Every structure is written in structure tokens, then in C-alpha cells.
Computed example of a mutant assay.
Amino acid sequence: MSLKGIILIIDPVGACMLRSVLAAVLILFSAVSVAQTVTVYSYRQPFLVEPMLEMFTEETGIKTQVVFAQTGLEERLRREGRLSPADVVLTTDISRLATLVDMGLTQPVQSDVLSANIPSQYRAPDNHWFALTLRTRNVYSSMARIGAAELRYEDLATPAFKGKICMRSGKNAYNVALIASMIAHHGEAKTKQWLEGVKANLARKPQGNDRAQITAVAEGVCDYAIGNSYYYGKMLEDPKQAGWAEQVVINFPNQADRGAHINVSGAVMAKHAKNAAGGQALIEFLSGQKAQQVYAELNAEYPVHPEVAPSEMVASWGAFKADVLPVYQLSEHHAQAMKLLDEVRFDL
């Protein structure tokens, strides 16, 4: 009997078994490959994210693939639905974190590691989001004309600041969060009066980004400006912008009472994550001391991990008292803040 004949004789059973075994092996290899890759959707810039993802892969063996974007990730996730490849979303500001949750695009993560690394005020009570970095919402003053200033956010609405303030659009996420904190502390009616007062004290119509406000103070357009701390740090590190940043003083408001307002960046686990275990490992890694130090050094942000010190430059700005208001409460007042901005026609 020839070899060909033997093959033909066993084909009906043996070939089917072989095909089944091969299929099982392919499925196994595919599952292993998926389990070793975490897909990240990120609003955070590549220069900051990529070094930490490389460290994560080196430490865990889990690979990552990233989709970077400036806008539209929420709609993309909703459109993709169950077919979305996203495991983790990295984003900035509590409003974006809350939007992802409100759109039903997240799932909770139960993790003792995250509970230990991140103070409770900087994570969702239901574990649907976790802050990874902190930024203060500062008031900058002209070094030449004003010098250091002990002030409160509330002071910006008083007559002494008439024509002296610059800020970006009230509807920018950072300012909406600040207004939401004012509502949390003072109520809607008093916050509306405050917004009207701040608008009356603006040196120009709201425009530009946070860096543009610091530049405006340096150029004499205004004496005070509202902006996030890490933009100031990035300007100091940029030879093209350092000259402007060096002409302002960074002031931490409300040090005699509740403390300076805090913005956050953070992470969520995507609702339809295919690799939730790997995604959790990544978020835990980003909250750990090694990654937190990278955040501190590369982007002039304050680490959320209480045992990690800020960079030498950031530390040079001095210690400050932070508002202890739980960050999740800012999202609860987001809609009210937007409504008040419309009512006072803040940007017009």
C-alpha cells in the first residue's frame, strides 16, 4: 500500500481531528496575543505617554498600542460599541472623565493597589475613574507691577481688579471645573454674582489658551491671569516662551481658607475592554511611584501618589494648600456652571 493510500484511508477522521487541533492551537495563540496587548485611547500627548508605556511593557511583558487624538474619542467609543478595541482611556480634566462615565463608556475597577496609590478625593466613589496627575488653577500676577499676591478666587470679582484680569473662554473645561468648585462652596446664586464681577473686571474678551494669558500679563495687557500650573512650567522650559513666564509670579489662591482649586488628568477602563486584566495592570502601573515620577519630571504636573515628590522646578514654586473638595463633586455641578456662563454671557 502506498503512502498516498494510507493518507486517503485516514483522511475522513484523522484530517478532521487535525483540523480541530490546529484550530484550537490558533485560537490559543490568538488569545495569548490579545492578552499581552493593551489598547489605549489617549488625549494625553505622545511625548508624555510613550515613555511610560515602554516602561510598562519592560516591567510586565504586556505590549500596548495607542490611538492618540485631540478630540472625538468619546464619540468614537460610542460608535464602536462592543466592537471597540479600547481597553483604557487616558484623558484630561474631570469633565472628560465624567462625560465618559455618563455616556456609559466605562466600567468600574476594583483594585487595592489603586486605593493605596490614589487618595480618595482623586478617584470616583464607584471606581469608574482614577486621577493620575494634579494641576493647580493658579492666578498669575505681573512681577514688575504687582509682585506676589495673597488673594482668593473670590477677590477677582471685586472692584480692585477692574480691567486687570485675563483668562481664556469660560467654557474651557478647566474654567468650568473652577466655576463648579465655586458652586460647590458658595451655591449657584453667589457664583453667578461672582461670574458677573469677574466678567466686568476682564481687560479683554476671553481668548487664547492658558499660555496666552501668561503672555498677556508679560506684555502689559493685564496684571493678573488665570491658568493651570503645568502650562507655566512648560513655558519656563521652552526657550521661546521662558521670557514671558519669567515676568509673572505664580500665586496659589485661597491659602487662608479652603485652598487652591485642583484639576486632574486620569484614566478609565473602557466598558467593552477585551483585556481588562491588562488594562487594570496598566492603570495600576501609571499610579505607581515609577510612572508618577515620570509624570512629574516630563510635564511639570503634581503626582497624585502622595509619596512622590514634584520635580525640582515645580517644588521651587513653594508648598501650597489644596482644596479638599472631592473632585467627583465638580462633575455634579458641571451643568450648572455651563448654564451660568450662558446666563451672564461670559464669553461675549
Score class of each variant (00 low, 15 high):
residue 2 S to L: 08
residue 2 S to E: 09
residue 7 I to D: 00
residue 8 L to E: 09
residue 11 D to H: 07
residue 13 V to F: 15
residue 15 A to Y: 00
residue 21 V to T: 11
residue 25 V to K: 11
residue 29 F to G: 01
residue 30 S to E: 07
residue 38 V to M: 14
residue 41 Y to M: 07
residue 52 M to T: 05
residue 59 E to S: 08
residue 70 Q to A: 12
residue 71 T to W: 13
residue 74 E to D: 15
residue 75 E to Q: 14
residue 85 P to F: 10
residue 87 D to E: 07
residue 89 V to P: 01
residue 104 G to E: 11
residue 112 D to N: 12
residue 115 S to P: 00
residue 117 N to Q: 15
residue 118 I to E: 01
residue 119 P to H: 08
residue 120 S to Q: 13
residue 122 Y to P: 06
residue 126 D to K: 09
residue 129 W to L: 06
residue 132 L to F: 05
residue 137 R to K: 07
residue 149 A to N: 04
residue 159 P to A: 08
residue 161 F to G: 09
residue 161 F to H: 10
residue 164 K to M: 13
residue 167 M to I: 03
residue 179 I to A: 04
residue 180 A to W: 01
residue 181 S to H: 08
residue 188 E to C: 02
residue 189 A to Q: 12
residue 192 K to E: 10
residue 200 A to C: 11
residue 201 N to L: 08
residue 202 L to R: 01
residue 204 R to S: 06
residue 214 I to N: 00
residue 218 A to V: 12
residue 224 Y to P: 02
residue 225 A to N: 06
residue 227 G to D: 05
residue 231 Y to R: 06
residue 241 Q to T: 13
residue 246 E to C: 06
residue 253 P to A: 15
residue 253 P to F: 12
residue 256 A to Y: 06
residue 259 G to H: 04
residue 261 H to K: 05
residue 262 I to P: 00
residue 267 A to E: 10
residue 267 A to N: 11
residue 271 K to W: 13
residue 299 N to C: 05
residue 307 E to D: 15
residue 307 E to P: 02
residue 311 S to I: 07
residue 321 K to N: 12
residue 322 A to C: 02
residue 327 V to N: 12
residue 328 Y to M: 09
residue 331 S to Q: 09
residue 339 K to N: 03
residue 346 F to Q: 04
residue 347 D to M: 08
residue 347 D to H: 05
